[in-house]
Amino acid sequence: MRKKNVLLWLSAALVYLFLYLPLVIVVVFSFNDSKLNAEWVGFTWKWYGKLLHNREMLGAAMNSLIIATVSAGVATILGTLAGMAMSQYRLRLLQLLVLAPIAMPEILMGVSLLVLFILVNMTLGLMSIMLAHITFCIGFVALSVQARMSSMDPALVEAARDLGASPWRCFREITLPLLMPGILAGALMAFTLSIDDFVITFFTAGVGSSTLPLQIYSMVKIAVTPEVNAVSTLLMLLTLVVITAASRLSPTIFRGE
């Protein structure tokens, strides 16, 4: 191994500090016994206690979970189809439709879906948010499945067909299991993108369909209490747990293989 470049390591360490310092501050202040995030007063658990009784927050968390589960589910099915189609055929239009939503600034999808939903007289709510989330999740699943598909040996399917397997059996017993890591990675990505989305949800949410990010936005904007810090800390913890669990289950997920 070549010798370490001190300058390189030092600057990288500084960037890591830049990445983590703000989050540490959020966590520390979530235990601060003062309404203001200004100076350290004393240790307390009270913001977490308050959070447990904040039904709006719990309701929003529930909404986020429902939306992310349904959107990721539907987007995974549609995205898998798209990914399989894209890797086997040359479909310019599908390619464009799958890639463009990923490349556009989110706000554009948000306002254009808002206009669409209102013009067709649809009541904004969980349903409209899900339809929107599915739209931006399809592409990510499709890309993940396409990548997996292109590394697959087509001879396997052909051999199975030659041996007399029906197309459905072929799909179920060969294609699907081989694609599974790609599909799972895509689904996980869709789930996180959906649960984390603020911009598109901001424009397509209606009455009583507030999600966690929307709730956090209004708390940050009005900035009342360190409950925001508490909920942020819990979210980070949850993410950590999910990531650890997911990497145990499928170590390849994070390498985009």
Binding site: L114, F117, M122, T123, L124, G206, G208
Partner: peptide
């Protein structure tokens, strides 16, 4: 007020 009107205008029915 404008924010509220826009929200209601944008079909925020259910309040």
């Amino acid at each position: 007020t404008e924010e509220m009107m826009a929200k209601l205008q944008a079909g925020a029915s259910g309040y």
